[in-house]
Design a protein around this nucleic acid. Structure first.
Length: 384
RNA sequence: GCUGGAGUCGUCUAGUGGCUAUGACAGCAGACUGUAAAUCUGCCGGGGUUCCCCCAUCGUAGGUUCGAGUCCUACCUCCAGCA
């Protein structure tokens, strides 16, 4: 399904956008989803520990899968034979595939040696074999996977990269985007471009202008959720990119994130997000709860509880009283604590349901606030 | 009762004369942002001024030795076999 974006209302004070992502398949059938939207991540064609029915109950729009992982296992050919990713994984809503760009960041050990003009060398973590992924290959794989949105293959540089490195990197990423666009053949799939450039205004502007000039179906802002990056740099990266992105296309902030980041980013004009944190935190026993706390650097940070902690042994209240998710409606903190202590998968399932639903509820609240032109109030209340 | 074997952290366990008693599990915390992640890190005898210091400790009590969880003696407990 190809995607278009309809901007319905912009918050008067902040510029936060309420809109719709409209998916149309080859037969003209339409699916509409409201934005801002949080997209759960299902790297290996499954949102870890959840069935599609359980994912659906959290009321998401798009979900993610990963090109690199599915290329390795089970291979693009197998997914294609299965009838495409939707059929293969039994998910009939929209799917966005990441290009493998993040794996450039996390798997290419020697950036200078492994990242070349032609493509990126990886060592397989499965069997140690040498792999080579190019922009063309990434797009071809995504064409075969038949996701609804394909991402351009980019370099996702570490937060520590300097201006000179980033300059070379974004120029190469722009060339990679052109190469990928040339081989993109799936007429039932949209293709997004990615803006990079670290926290630098000139680089973000250059990257955004060059990428937009190629006329992609949507644009994402990348390189903002890496290792040691501080919040200020993340917000700068967004602010320096957004002004050069068109109003009539989706804006996707890649890899974010924490509740506070969603609110701050929506205020700056972002529409869609994805992040592994709700499901990973869940598997590690953590539940997101409403509120905010601060790090020792006085940066805002999400609030959450670790249900493995002994203090929840006899806590027979739900994770959150006012949450409408399956976990909160039916189970207690004590029960989830017990499941996590026993390494029972169902504990991770319940926490994943809660954490995903938590972020989606947050986007629902933000949509209402934007529609009512009260997003600034919402934001200050949330941050307080 | 006799003979043999064994007692090490909450549990199991390494250790056969030498520097700081090993590892696992359990326990207590922390980290996690386009998933190399149901993972990783720290603590885990007691105390303190806690990136350092003091004290204690291998069933109990003695002994040998410069030095003992390790060797010797006695006792206690457990296990196996025989009566």
């Amino acid at each position: 399904m190809k995607v278009t974006y309809e901007l319905i209302h912009q918050d008067k004070e902040t510029g936060a956008r309420y809109g719709k992502a409209i998916f149309t398949d080859a037969n003209g059938n339409i699916q509409e989803y409201e934005t801002p939207m949080f997209m759960p991540v299902g790297t290996q064609a499954t949102v870890k520990t959840l069935s599609p029915e359980q994912v659906k109950a959290t009321k998401p729009g798009i979900i993610l899968a990963n090109t690199y992982h599915l290329w390795q296992r089970p291979s693009a050919e197998i997914v294609q034979k299965a009838g495409g990713l939707h059929q293969f994984m039994n998910w009939h809503g929209p799917i966005l595939t990441d290009s493998g760009g993040y794996q450039v960041f996390s798997l290419a050990r020697n950036k200078k040696k492994d990242i070349t003009e032609e493509g990126v060398h990886f060592k397989s973590e499965l069997d140690g074999s040498k792999l080579f992924l190019t922009p063309e290959k990434s797009i071809e794989i995504q064409n075969m996977l038949d996701s609804d949105i394909a991402m351009s293959f980019d370099e996702c540089p570490p937060a520590s990269a300097d201006h000179q490195y980033l300059k070379n990197s974004i120029e190469r990423t722009i060339r990679w985007a052109e190469r990928g666009k040339k081989v993109h053949k799936n007429s039932n799939q949209s293709l997004f471009g990615i803006v990079q450039g670290g926290p630098y205004e000139d680089l973000r502007r250059f990257s955004a202008e060059q990428t937009v000039a190629m006329n992609f179906d949507g644009y994402s802002i990348g390189g903002v959720a890496n290792d040691d990056e501080c919040k200020d740099d993340m917000y700068k990266a967004i602010e320096y990119s957004i002004p050069y992105l068109p109003n009539d296309k989706l804006r996707y902030l890649m890899g974010v994130g924490e509740p506070v980041d969603l609110v701050e980013s929506v205020a700056r004009g972002v529409d869609i997000f994805d992040c592994v944190s709700p499901t990973r935190l869940a598997r590690h026993g953590n539940a997101l709860i409403w509120g905010i706390r601060y790090t020792d650097k006085n940066e805002p940070k999400e609030k959450r509880i670790n249900l493995k902690n002994a203090c929840f042994t006899a806590d027979f209240s739900p994770i959150e009283d006012d949450c409408d998710c399956y976990a909160c409606k039916n189970y207690t903190r004590a029960y989830i604590h017990h499941l996590m202590k026993c390494n029972e998968t169902f504990g991770a399932t319940l926490l994943s349901i809660h954490n995903i639903r938590f972020l989606i509820r947050l986007t629902e609240k933000m949509r209402e606030a934007i529609k009512n032109d009260s997003f600034a109030d919402f934001k200050s209340t949330f941050l307080a």
